[in-house]
Structure formats: C-alpha cells, structure tokens
Design a protein around this nucleic acid. Structure first.
Length: 284
DNA sequence: ATAAACGCCTGACGGC
DNA sequence: TGCCGTCAGGCGTTTA
C-alpha cells in the first residue's frame, strides 16, 4: 500500500490528528501485544514488551517509507510493505473488538490504542535505541532540500541499469514505489526500460523535478487509496498511467501499455515516453 | 554490478 | 456457485 506520500500522510495524522484518529503525541504505552509474531523484526517479543511498556511517544517522523515513533529511550520503526495500515482507536467501549488482520497493538494510558493492521503480513516493526541501525543503507530522501538535481544526475551516471529498476532501488533513492515511479517517468517523458548510461543531463534534471512534483502532489492529496484499503487519499484520481492499461493517454491519445520491468507491472505511454537506448536505436 | 527468480501472505477480480 | 489464474502501493535472499 504505502509509498512515501502515504507514509507521510499517516505520520501527519498520528502527529496532528485526522483520519478518524487523534494525535498520539504524549501517549504513554501501558501494554504492547504482538498478534502475529513475525511482525516483529527485532527484538524478541518478550524483550519488546518489557522495553516499550511505560515509554511515552515524544515525536513522530518519517524516513523513506519508514514510520518512526520516537519514545523516551527507544525508537519504534514500522514498515508497512504492501498492505500495512496504522489506525488509532478511541476506547469509549474498553472491549472494542480488534479487526481482521490486526497484527500489533500499543495500548495507551488515555483510553486509546494504536493498531498495526497488515493483511499480507509483509510489514515489519523494530524497537531499537538507534534508528540508524535500520536506516543506514537508505539512499537520499527525494524531497530533502539539500538534495540537488546535480547530485541526482551524478548518482544516476554511476549505474548502468534500467531506469525504473534503479528508481525503485531504495539504496539509490529512498521512498519511491511502483505507482509514483510510473507517474514520475511519464511526467518526465522517459521510457522505464531505458538504460541510465544513455541519460542526458537535461533528462536527469527533468526526472528529478518530476519525482518531486508527483511526490508533492501525492502528499497534497493525502496519498492514494486503491484496492480494498481506504485511507481517504485522493491521488488515485490523478494517475496518468498507473492502472490505465488499454486506455487513451491524456496527452497524445495513444494506448497506455503495461509491461514488466524489474519484476513489477509498469505502465507507460509508448508515444510520450519513446526515449530509448542508443544501442536499441542502432538495431532498429 | 546487474538482474532474474523466488519467497513471504491474503484477497479481489475476471473468465469459464 | 465454485475453481482457476492473475494481479497487488515491497523487499530480502539466492542464483546466474
């Protein structure tokens, strides 16, 4: 489910309230329950429960697709992977039933609870004293004001890979997923299969700006809501290529295609995104 | 270095 | 109705 804008939306809701829940800042954890043991990446359940109980949520942040709850002593990190979601329940009725696929619960002292729901069980939670233990291998944050188009292009040119596969690599750039990558490549007019070795500076700069534009638009729309999981986002109404196989391109009217790139379903306009590798051009 | 195949999971959807 | 294949917002490991 979540890419950078969706996790950012959840972060803001947990910080400021919204999405049907209240802010969890200042909430003290009185008990933790792990309903699906493999949710916990580290430490073991017994240590997790004893360490987290009593700590207060001091602040909340996001790094790439990770959500970070900063506690008194430790940081709890969550990665939602494909189908994770986080909600806050107010317990007017103390026995309010948990929901299907709830995997981890933090019970607060003020009659609330934070629940990690995760149908496909891919999501993971960490409790560590130093979040860098988990985050140290991540690439740059695309919206970091100190990250520049020149740096992005220089990084691109250190690889000879299919462009989309590189953008999805979290070591290269941290936060893009399948939807926003397809949308950014369309906005930049670049073919997802082209090799980065043929990318010109102007193309790289335009890609950098397109990535920022789609991420910022996604955040402004509170992320995208698709499939059976609803989070109140609206960005799905602005998809230009994702999920539009067989439909007409809004720009040129060509039929949007779906191919596989880097093991992922990939949507693009063959006319607007007809950049191609030099080698392929010579073969044609 | 790059990339493919596969594993991890549940559920929705379309075709027959 | 059931059954079946396909697809799904991610990522780690293993294998070429």
């Amino acid at each position: 489910m979540p890419e950078l804008p969706e996790v950012e939306t959840i972060k803001r809701a947990l910080t400021l309230g919204g999405r049907g829940g209240e802010s969890v800042l200042g909430c003290q954890i009185i008990q933790a329950d792990v309903l699906w043991p493999r949710t916990l990446q580290t430490p073991d359940i017994k240590t997790f429960k004893s360490r987290i109980e009593g700590q207060v949520i001091q602040s909340i942040s996001r790094r790439a697709k990770y959500l970070l709850l900063h506690l008194d002593q430790d940081t709890m990190l969550m990665h939602l992977r494909m189908s994770g979601d986080v909600r806050v329940d107010a317990l007017q009725n103390p026995s309010l039933a948990l929901q299907k696929h709830d995997r981890l619960v933090l019970w607060f002292a003020n009659q609330r609870r934070l629940v990690f729901n995760n149908p496909r069980k891919f999501g993971r939670v960490w409790l560590v004293s130093d979040p860098e233990d988990v985050l140290s291998e991540l690439g740059p944050e695309p919206l970091d004001p100190d990250f520049t188009a020149d740096q992005f292009y220089a990084n691109l040119k250190r690889h000879k890979r299919q462009l989309k596969a590189l953008l999805l690599d979290q070591h290269f750039l941290a936060g893009l997923g399948n939807i926003y990558t397809d949308e950014a490549l369309f906005l930049a007019g670049l073919n997802p299969t082209m090799n980065t070795q043929y990318l010109k500076y102007e193309q790289g700069k335009r890609l950098f700006e397109s990535i920022r534009t789609v991420l910022e638009t996604g955040i402004r729309r509170n992320g995208a809501s698709i499939d059976w999981v609803y989070r109140g986002g609206q960005f799905q109404n602005e998809f230009k290529v994702y999920g539009r196989r067989g439909k007409a391109c809004y720009v040129c009217g060509s039929t949007i295609e779906r191919i596989i790139v880097g093991q992922r379903g990939t949507h693009f306009c063959p006319e607007c995104q007809n950049t191609r590798d030099t080698t392929l051009s010579m073969e044609e």
